[in-house]
Amino acid sequence: MRPLTNEETKLVLTKLKKYIGQNVRTLLERSDGLYCLRLHNNRVYYVKEEIMKFAVSLPRENLVSLGVCFGKITKGGKFMLRITALDFLHPYCQNKIWVKSSSEDSFLYGNHVYKSGLSRISDNTAKYTGAIIFSSKDIPLGFGVTGKSTPECRLADPMNIICFNQADVGEYIRNEEGLI
C-alpha cells in the first residue's frame, strides 16, 4: 500500500471530475476527518486516515480491502472506475438520468439505457459525459457515459442509446469475484 503518485492522482481525479465536477474537492477535504487515496494491488482505495494507519501495520499480503475501493489502475495506465465508488459519486453528481421502472431490470443486467427506457434526464447534460443512473424511486443504480445530450434526447428514436453502461449494482451479484 502506498500513496498515489502525482500522475496517478491526476488520472483518478480527472475521471472523478467527469461525474462530480468540482465536488472532487469536497470529497477530499471533509469536515469529519482526514481522508486519503491509497494504492494497494493496483486498486485505488478511499479511506479515513486513522484506518489507513492501522491497516499499515497489518501483513500486506493478507490485506484485501480497506475503506472503499474506487477502481483500479490498469496495466495500460488507465483508471477504471468501479461500481463500489457509486456511494461517493451519487450525492455529488451533476448529471442524472432516471430510468422507467420497466427498464430498471434491463439496466441492472448490464444493458445500456435506451430512449424507450428513459424517464427523465437532468437539464444541460452534455454528450459523452459521466452521468449517474437512478431508478424511479431515486435509488442509485449505476453510472455511465451519455450518448446523447438533453436536447438530442427529445428527438431520439426509442432504440437510441442515451447512456452507455459503465457499471451497475447488478455486478454485486453478477460479478462478485471481480468487484475489486
Binding site: I51, P59, V64, S65, C69, E176, L179, I180
Partner: peptide, 22 residues
C-alpha cells in the same frame, strides 16, 4: 469467502472497515 465479505461491505456502504485474510 472473503470476496463475499468485500461485496457485502461495498454494497451496504460500509466505509470504516479493513478486510483481511489472516
Amino acid at each position: 469467502r472473503v470476496k463475499a465479505v468485500v461485496g457485502n461491505f461495498h454494497r451496504l456502504g460500509i466505509t470504516n472497515s479493513v478486510i483481511t485474510t489472516n
